[in-house]
């Protein structure tokens, strides 16, 4: 029934590890963090599916208050996993594009997804006419979930994702243009930071020994960002983006830029440059 020789050689292979790799090559030590990251993403897409069910159901039931309350928390699972989600060009557009990505802005028929719903709920103050957009969002999220489950994550995208999320915050979130109708930008901020920090935390054990100064600096900047965001927490989420003071916006901006720059060196440090 069982080939004993296979067992012994198999275990020897499994336990033998990997020797003789050149220093510039990535290490097998990355396998654990990369796998853990996919599990994190899978948990978030499962959460996204569940949250989007509730959000789109509220819209279709015409429950404006409930739909508005569920908009920001539903988005957070998407914002956390954006480095992977945005690999799918078609879905990223239909789920998360902003009005100004289109020629006719809000009036463009290709304008769909979260921000189309946000526009309807806040600018128009109504769930009317939103049902087809809700159905489309739900279908897209199911497709996203299936595609992510079937995807072998490219290591350089995962490792590069920590910086990519910070660049995203720096370029489009600090200005407050992401959630312009609902002013729930700080929820997205928090999710982008959490997603970036997750990648960084998973990789930290691989670099902590050789680069303690780098780790101390990045840890410090993440803590500084957390401290600023903590001031604006309200219930399970955040106050309106309009309440963010100029001083705090500037502080966040500078920390985010530094984090983006520092985290962009992770790929090189881990042989995935």
């Amino acid at each position: 029934m069982i080939g004993t020789y296979l067992k012994t050689t198999g275990l020897a292979l499994a336990l033998g590890g990997w020797a003789g790799m050149a220093a510039a090559d990535p290490s097998l030590d990355l396998v654990g963090p990369l796998a853990d990251y996919k599990i994190y993403v899978a948990e978030n897409t499962a959460q996204l599916v569940a949250d989007a069910e509730a959000f789109t159901t509220a819209i279709k039931a015409g429950d404006l208050d409930k739909a508005k309350a569920l908009f920001a928390p539903t988005r957070t699972s998407y914002e956390k996993i954006e480095p992977i989600a945005e690999l799918f060009s078609d879905l990223d557009v239909s789920i998360d594009a902003r009005a100004d990505d289109f020629e006719k802005a809000e009036a463009d028929e290709a304008f769909t997804g979260f921000h189309r719903l946000e526009y309807g709920l806040w600018e128009k103050g109504s769930t009317e006419g939103l049902a087809p957009f809700a159905d489309r969002l739900m279908a897209d999220i199911h497709t996203l979930n299936e595609r992510i489950n079937g995807l072998t994550f490219p290591p350089e995208v995962v490792v590069g994702g920590a910086a990519a999320l910070m660049e995203e915050v720096a370029a489009t979130k600090i200005s407050g243009e992401e959630d312009r109708y609902s002013r729930t930008d700080l929820w997205d901020f928090d999710a982008n930071f959490a997603g970036s920090q997750k990648i960084y935390d998973l990789l930290k054990p691989l670099i902590a020994k050789q680069d303690p100064e780098f780790v101390a600096k990045v840890d410090g900047n993440f803590a500084a960002v957390d401290a600023v965001l903590a001031k604006y927490k309200e219930g399970d989420g955040y106050v309106s983006y309009e309440k963010l003071t100029d001083a705090d916006r500037n502080l966040l901006s500078s920390k985010v830029n530094t984090l983006a720059e520092d985290l962009s060196t992770l790929r090189g440090k881990l042989g995935l440059g």
Binding site: W18, L28, V31, A35, K38, I39, F153
Partner: peptide, 19 residues
């Protein structure tokens, strides 16, 4: 053939083992 090309598949198998 590089170790880098194996990293994604190895990680994906680990996810499968865990799930």
């Amino acid at each position: 053939v590089t170790l880098k090309k194996f990293l994604g598949p190895l990680s994906e198998y680990r996810v499968y083992l865990v799930m």
